[in-house]
Design a protein around this nucleic acid. Structure first.
Ligand SMILES: [Zn+2]
Ligand SMILES: [Zn+2]
Ligand SMILES: [Zn+2]
Ligand SMILES: [Zn+2]
Lengths: 121, 121
DNA sequence: ATGGAAATGATAATCATTTCCATTTTGTGA
DNA sequence: TCACAAAATGGAAATGATTATCATTTCCAT
């Protein structure tokens, strides 16, 4: 485990939730760390390979990362104001598992988001 | 519904399954159609907006498109070969509804995808 | 036919990510 | 400590998908 990898783990811990490589790089730079963008990408790649970090995708395809072991959850997003609530997957978790087994899939993950208009909007 | 949109629907019908914008453009070009890449992207965008086409992401973040049936459904996608199965939402539908009500959201929709490795991969 | 709106496509711009490569840091045995 | 190879680093350029511009063409109603 080299220095850069530890830095990335630390910043992911500090920020919590998801962040893109570019965002993580900016955060580190803002904090005075002169780490290069290349190194950020490289560190994230190895952390993903080592299953220390999860890789997901934003709506636009950009890769976002989070520490594994963060509690798994989903989102309820307001289309109007962007306000977001973290919610439990509840029935979704079992649903995903059952379906995957039914079709013989392994190494399975899932995404589930709810979006609508909140009370204020 | 303009000419290009219909062309894209036709080629998606012909090929079946998912394809990227670049691939669809190449296919049309190979078939002698001089359609521009810009138009392919534009047509796919409107078809997605009109819920005629589904948009998903490859493992590397590239957008892939497929005709969707009119019935609401979800997807089980193989990260290895891209093979996709349309599945019923089952418990997800109620989950989304209950959560949305609980938080006072209206005009609500949801997404839910499962991804993993199929038996062959 | 004619004028305006919509559609089209070539080109350039954008933006995340990867590749390349020269330089620096680190670890280790003499 | 010293030498030296391996690993790590980061800037710059390359790549590749997607989007923005904009001049031109096609449609369509009058
Ligand atoms: Zn709102
Ligand atoms: Zn879940
Ligand atoms: Zn497969
Ligand atoms: Zn559903």
């Amino acid at each position: 485990m080299n220095k850069s990898n530890l830095k990335l783990i630390a910043v992911l811990e500090r920020t919590g939730g998801f962040a893109s490589a570019q965002e993580l790089h900016q955060i580190l730079r803002r904090e005075g760390d002169g780490i290069g963008l290349t190194t950020v990408y490289r560190a994230l790649q190895t952390l993903v390979d080592d299953k220390i970090v999860d890789l997901l995708r934003r709506e636009d395809g950009e890769a976002i990362y989070r520490l594994c072991g963060d509690t798994h959850h989903h989102h309820l997003v307001c289309k109007g104001c962007g306000n977001t609530v973290e919610i439990e997957g509840g029935a979704v978790e079992k649903w995903a598992k059952v379906i995957a087994e039914e079709y013989g899939f392994r190494d399975v993950g899932h995404t589930a988001e709810i979006f609508g208009l909140c009370e204020k909007c």
